[in-house]
Design a protein around this nucleic acid. Sequence first.
DNA 1: TAAAGATAAAATTTATAAATTTTGCGCCGA
DNA 2: TCGGCGCAAAATTTATAAATTTTATCTTTA
Lengths: 240, 240
Amino acid sequence: MNVNLLKNGAESPATLATSIYEQLKADILSTRLEPGRKLQLRFLIEHYDAGQTPLREALNRLTTEDLVIGKEQRGFFVKPISLDELHELTKTRCWVETLALRESMANATPDWEEALLVAHHRLERIPRSLNPEHFEDNPEWERLHRAFHALLIGGCGSRPLIGFCEQLADRLYRYRALSIRKAFRVRKVSDEHARILKAVLDRDAAEAERLLQQHYEKTAEIIRTDLGATNNDAAATIDG
Amino acid sequence: MNVNLLKNGAESPATLATSIYEQLKADILSTRLEPGRKLQLRFLIEHYDAGQTPLREALNRLTTEDLVIGKEQRGFFVKPISLDELHELTKTRCWVETLALRESMANATPDWEEALLVAHHRLERIPRSLNPEHFEDNPEWERLHRAFHALLIGGCGSRPLIGFCEQLADRLYRYRALSIRKAFRVRKVSDEHARILKAVLDRDAAEAERLLQQHYEKTAEIIRTDLGATNNDAAATIDG
DNA sequence: TAAAGATAAAATTTATAAATTTTGCGCCGA
DNA sequence: TCGGCGCAAAATTTATAAATTTTATCTTTA
């Protein structure tokens, strides 16, 4: 019973390069591979148990996504973080996601509204952390959280725009991962999602856009505080 | 006197992979490599006089940019064209570039306005086609045209957004290249640029946005006509 | 006609070689 | 004695060539 048979209907089994790409991406986004770290081929070959070519291909893909920086003739590095980038990414995300949400709402269908309702319901029933004391990432919550936000903008009618939003979400995910480690603060994020959902179902586009923007800006503010708490230049590297 | 010394201050010489990437990209955008065409490694190795590794890396980068489609275990293909994609890209470009232009204008400085004026002036003094009879692409005009549009949105303050706009411009360039071959029609594109410039210098953001959007929609409409003139499914492949 | 097997072609990966950058050491001069 | 310059060795990245795996095609057989 191969997993590929389930995943791929008419498609071919994934290549090693694709598999490595996904692993590497996950490790970078979770900051198991710290920002700024040099990605030496020798190290990667050992850790990911793969040859040079598939690794090199994965790194090249990640370079285009700006998660890895490739310096000509001197190797690859995990993209460093900076307060500057955090600000830029947040600003951009607010711009394009409010735009996409506006379009989604203009194209709203009963199916879409119902799917959103269900996605929100599922998210509410899952704990943010696997452990109520110290924070322990709940992958299922992350998945559902992401699905809810993806659904919000999913009806905009532009796959390129959706892809761009996903990329921004990826690049911001890293900052959230770093922040969470430092300070597990309680935030009524659930309320925020509920209010966004309400505005959407009320067909109040202006309010929905306002709340979504506020949601992202608040996240960035918290991250900024957590990151600034221990170091000012924000070029910190946290080990996994 | 090495050219690398001029181009790179402290940087290293480009790798073959990067050089091949640029060549491949140029050939795809100009449609010298036709949409939908299979990119066999054997062929590429001969034509680009390079080994497998740099070619493979270049293809992987282009895959992330959606200019090349990589089917697992069965090779790479130039991304096919479709009226659907033309429409989607144009719509998206209008959305994000009007957004970026609005921000650019909000951040306007005298330097920026003057640079725009100069860029437009340069563009006006260069002929669209090297030959007034039949169309012959003038690379310098393309360069200046692109520079003018890049400058319009360049002050928006978001590098990710600028990058996204560039990617959209790349992906649309291919459609323009195909269209131009089929029908070299006279269009007062110069007037359109002049009116956009005027609106920007007048600080009339709403008007500037309207004109920019109109500019892109008109382009798409002409392309759609040209492409539909000879075949309906728009999966045409034009040979170089 | 359809299925199975064999052959050929092509893509992916590993292994080897070449080129480039980094590092360490010794020398010279201040 | 200290600091800079330059050369050589080591490490690392990049590129080529070979081997492996997978897919596609063609023929044969039931």
